[in-house]
Design a protein around this nucleic acid. Structure first.
Lengths: 141, 141
DNA sequence: TTCTTTAAGGAGAATGATTCTTATTTAGTA
DNA sequence: TACTAAATAAGAATCATTCTCCTTAAAGAA
């Protein structure tokens, strides 16, 4: 289901950010692609409708969206940054053969981890979030 | 406790690899630094004793060590690669304020995840490894 | 011990990803 | 409608990693 432009405008303005066409289409691209895209993936997608968007703008807007918790960065072991449009807590399936990363949500797993970490102490460390990296290989890659 | 050079030589030769001074000192650097270093961190460390080692050589050796399961790449959300000298299954504490990454081992957590994932099905996906990203902030950063 | 072979390393160029700088444009408010 | 500060465009600069080609050396055979 495609996210409406109105919904996106709302998300952006609620963060006290100017609602610019670039920000709208970058966020829309991330939702539409829905595959933890790189900045280049996003730029290519957007240039179908906005041929003149600058690479620097894309990086700049991505940084702004991350800082304002509208998107998240995804951890990978490559020298390239990826982005996630889902900000609610979830986990990832990583393929060790290719760059595919899939979302994984399961309330049971969340509760299980929540209970475990409630019991644990981490002196000098303030816990914020738990993300499970589920590593393996996809048949389709 | 510092790993002996003999131990390192043994690890390298057991993988059928030539034992070169560069490979020994790169692996030693990773063990000594023990902080999920970048290629640049490793290069700087090594140049104290091997001033002429080439950057390309460091990247090449790191790639070889990863391929042979002597070290592992660490997932981060930056455009820079980090390496881990501990190949046994473990988890990581990530600081959201700085680049610090600390190891976290707990058999209880491992068993808990093992049991959970034993029950789950992932059609089209062959599970290999589970790593937990424990995100938060360190007081000391 | 010496020689040979193939793999590894050195040096630096090339490539790709990201950041920075400056001038122009524009979103939002008055 | 006008104004202002923020955002964007364009391209240069920087940084991280890979590639190419020539030289060196680890390891094994003789």
């Amino acid at each position: 289901m495609k996210t409406s432009i109105e919904h996106i405008r709302d998300k952006i303005s609620k963060k006290g950010l100017k609602v610019t066409p670039q920000r709208i289409c970058i966020l829309e691209a991330i939702y539409d692609l829905d595959n933890h895209p790189t900045a280049d993936n996003i730029t290519e997608y957007i240039r179908e409708t906005h041929p003149n968007i600058a690479t620097g703008t894309v990086y700049k807007v991505l940084e702004t969206l991350v800082e304002n918790n509208l998107i998240k960065k995804v951890k990978t072991d490559r020298d390239i940054m990826r982005y996630d449009g889902i900000i609610e807590a979830h986990h990832h399936l990583y393929c060790s053969e290719c760059d595919l990363i899939e979302d994984y949500m399961d309330h049971e797993l969340d509760e299980l981890l929540k209970d475990y970490f409630k019991k644990k102490k981490f002196p000098g460390f303030k816990l914020e979030d738990i993300v499970v990296q589920i590593r393996g290989t996809f048949d389709k890659c």
